[in-house]
Design a binder for these strands. Sequence first.
DNA 1: TTGTAAGCGTTATCAA
DNA 2: TTGATAACGCTTACAA
Lengths: 334, 334
Amino acid sequence: MKKVSVKDIAKLSGVSVATVSRVINNNGRFSEETRKKVLQVIEETGYEMNYSAKTLRTNKSYTIGILVPDISNYFFSDVVQKIEYILFERGYSTIICNTGRNEKKELDYLKVLQGKGVDGLIVISGAEEFSFDYTEAKKEIPYICIDREPKDKSQTTFISSNHYQGAFEATEHLIKVGCRHPIFAVLNRKSTSAKERLSGFKEALKKNHFTFDNSSILYLDNPPAEMKRQTQAFFNNYPTTDGILATNDAIALELLNILHNMQYKIPEQIKVIGFDDSPITNYSTPPLSSVQQDTAKIAETAANHLLYLMKHPNETGQTLIVPVTLKLRQSSAL
Amino acid sequence: MKKVSVKDIAKLSGVSVATVSRVINNNGRFSEETRKKVLQVIEETGYEMNYSAKTLRTNKSYTIGILVPDISNYFFSDVVQKIEYILFERGYSTIICNTGRNEKKELDYLKVLQGKGVDGLIVISGAEEFSFDYTEAKKEIPYICIDREPKDKSQTTFISSNHYQGAFEATEHLIKVGCRHPIFAVLNRKSTSAKERLSGFKEALKKNHFTFDNSSILYLDNPPAEMKRQTQAFFNNYPTTDGILATNDAIALELLNILHNMQYKIPEQIKVIGFDDSPITNYSTPPLSSVQQDTAKIAETAANHLLYLMKHPNETGQTLIVPVTLKLRQSSAL
DNA sequence: TTGTAAGCGTTATCAA
DNA sequence: TTGATAACGCTTACAA
């Protein structure tokens, strides 16, 4: 089955290719009659636009690239899915690139995306070690960063949840329900957002006249067995620990399991709060309190702002902070 | 910053565009000397291939489309991620399309992907109501189906977990650990795979001389509140139910919660097994037994087979079944 | 209101 | 071993 092109449409409807193009793009002027005729032929033949040709000619691909560390992570997949949805409604397709937190792969993707002529880029998170420096990769594709502080903020728009606020509120909550030695549990591989969360935690401690020192932060590493070892060692050293703010739900759940095995009662002896409010929080025992990020708002902001940036390339440099909500469940109850 | 093209490379290295193209694609013949020179210039200028032009010319896009119902579902995201990884290694980028189980959106995506000239298509699952009939959408893009039985198997390759085997084994396990009235819990919106699972369940019942009737199957609907109502009604009617095979982990977990609220003890009074073996199974109380699908194998098979199909368009019609593994945890313990 | 034709960056054919 | 050039399907001045 041969592909049908504008040329065929032109021939079949007895007009020129230029007219066909105008009709398709609702450009220039043409009579109602020809419009009808052309559209009818298009319908009949099942014509499909060849986007490569269009892109080549117009330098617009109607394609957006998304760089994301790990799509099986709930927060990421949720945001990506929502962005994709919005962009599709606006006529853009999305190439989702799973970088697996691998810098080389990220750079490779960047090259490909560039070659495909993406109109814009959304970069989500990533480890702090290689903060995104897209300018080095030259070419001027507008891009926005979610949750990853770019090296040069002036070249982009930075969108982030208010991690600071979330951690601050969560910590104050722990204190309010009676924790005397709340700690912050975080992966050694720290992201921009984890740093913000840590500083919210610290600030809440300070405001409530608690001291922050080695006994206030538990560093963890994957795999779970290693986490277990680290957690046990920590509780050996600091047995008065009675509250944990974890840097994400996955860690919080792992800790729930570990602590349960160590015979601690949650929330009676130790209260736990996670981050992200993933669906699993409802199914753990006890159900996990968590700081909910407003993924819908983040996605919407990101998509709209990128589209805007594509029209106004110079209006970069903004930072947009999206509020979070503390979802209380049993794991931090009195 | 102007984009550099083959023409520029040609000029700078003192050869023709044809030669540059040959070097880039390692095509035709050229002297070692020119090769070096050209590659050097490419390196220096940071030249990036314009894929739109290449695609337009060659009719190959090095892009694969993936149609997936819901990327925030663990099984789907896991498979997609793995496919994407393999394809990228082979030089293909992937456009992931979230259809949200919406037929119209799926058709729209199909059009766009066609327009972008994707070289192949991977279609994952979907509700049974609109079994994929890509042939109707004409054009002959090779495609393979995962977990979704296509209308016309002869046009594609069908890859699926052995849902039948998984359900069969899980059911036999329930019986072995003492269940006298095991049931199958399933969403009303049934997929191809759910049907297979149901038939494995039935067969295991039969083999063990249990009868299958209305009391053997619990139909559920979202949202959770509705599920709760349905479950309570079911247990009212059939109070001797003592084992559940759920059609996926999400439902199993919801049931765990509902049954817990109804004061049932799991696994003492009722044993539960899920499907997919998502990470959450470790964090529920009790930890959830589940049938694990071999996502790595599925992804690998799908990617390799699609690439193969792209070279040998006529060798369709195969069905590839991937074995599953029953992961036992406490929710179905004696 | 419509048509002609140039040109986007590649690859491929043919000739040199 | 190389170079000139047509062609891929589309948009867009410019002409008519």
